[in-house]
């Protein structure tokens, strides 16, 4: 059993009954100040299960704000955000933490791997918060690392890995708990073109396996690989045809 087999369940159900994985309803975020800063103007967005969406925009356009909202790291100041049909804007911190653990996988530009832990332990870290049964944790983590082509690096500290390998470790950590959506924030920002290509191919494979992907980037050739593209500029979200 691989991670992808487990992830493959969602799209087989009838789309009409399944709510979109990510749904923004007039979601806005403004930061208090004089005058208040509108980081994200009221936006509507719906991402169905199994979709591959990219958000492009120059720096300072509100990409990070959008990512923080989508990843439940920040609350919208207006509107509602439904994750897998569950309203989150007014959920308690505990519920939001549980949703982060079970429904969302993060991939960051800076990898965020713990330097003193092995590759395998870094992937296992995600399983302890998401409630993967203890007996399955190791097998799943090994399977996830195998999936990203790092089964020969299990006991290496991340500090000796190349950038591409680090990002693939981060991807393994993100998918090990079988999230509903993978949020990637500039996943290739710190990588050379070869490593970038490898990571993007990995995304393609994950998408082919049925995983919902949401990639935030400022690079056009990264966003070009997605099915759907959304542009964000000055806090306004706009679909690119």
């Amino acid at each position: 059993m691989t991670v992808l087999d487990l992830l493959g369940d969602a799209p087989t159900e009838s789309p009409s009954e399944v709510p979109p994985v990510v749904e923004l309803r007039g979601t806005a975020r403004q930061f208090p100040g004089d005058p208040p800063v509108h980081a994200l103007h009221p936006a509507d967005l719906s991402v169905g299960a199994g979709e591959y969406l990219s958000v492009v925009g120059p720096s300072g356009s509100g990409k990070s704000t959008l990512l923080n909202l989508l990843g439940l790291l920040d609350r919208p100041s207006d509107g509602e955000y439904l994750l897998d049909g569950i309203p989150t804007a007014h959920a308690s911190e505990r519920e939001r933490a549980a949703l982060r653990a079970g429904h969302i996988g993060f991939v960051f530009q800076a990898f965020h791997l713990l330097p003193h832990r092995s590759v395998l332990e870094n992937v296992l870290l995600a399983t302890i918060y998401s409630g993967v049964p203890r007996a399955e944790r190791r097998d799943r983590a090994v399977a996830a690392l195998e999936r990203v082509g790092l089964s020969h690096r299990l006991d290496f500290p991340p500090t000796v890995l190349s950038g591409g390998e680090r990002q693939r470790t981060a991807v393994a950590r993100a998918v090990v708990s079988q999230p509903r959506v993978l949020l990637a924030d500039e996943p290739t920002g710190n990588l050379d073109s070869e490593s970038s290509e490898a990571v993007l191919e990995l995304f393609d494979e994950l998408h082919a396996g049925g995983l919902t992907l949401l990639v935030i980037t400022h690079e056009d050739d990264v966003s070009a690989r997605a099915q759907r593209r959304v542009r964000i500029a000055d806090g306004h979200l706009r679909e690119i045809a």
């Binding site: 569950i86 079970g102 302890i128």
Partner: peptide, 26 residues
């Protein structure tokens, strides 16, 4: 929140063993 409850069984979500293991590693 039923969906969450099903996906995240409490017993295996950061239990005392995980707490001790993470603290020891730290």
């Amino acid at each position: 929140m039923t969906a969450v409850a099903q996906r995240v069984p409490r017993t295996d979500r950061f239990g005392p063993r995980d707490l001790l293991a993470e603290a020891a590693a730290g």
